[in-house]
Amino acid sequence: MNQTTPELALPEKVKKGDTVEVKVRINHAMKSQEYLQKLMVYYGGTLVFQYAMTPGVSDDPRVSFFLKAARSSEVKAVFIDNKGRKFEAVKTLHVEN
């Protein structure tokens, strides 16, 4: 089994209105028999980003995207694999006014 809890990287502190890069990584195989199907990212409970994945993505996926810092709130990343298993990571984005 080659899997682990995902890691979520956010900047330490940001100002309201800044656009910040969010990085997500996970150690998981991406083979036709076993692969991650989807990454969903929630900000303050709202789904803001999705990546529908295939075995054409490299093993141990590294994904990044940007997020507009609107308020201090939780960012949650959820991977789901083709066997229905979920792997989650949560961090708080601290936003200064």
């Binding site: 656009t19 709202t46 789904l47 803001v48 990546y51 529908a52 997020l67």
Partner: peptide, 8 residues
């Protein structure tokens, strides 16, 4: 990738 305006 599915994006939303919240990303900025």
């Amino acid at each position: 990738f599915s994006l939303t305006p919240a990303l900025g």
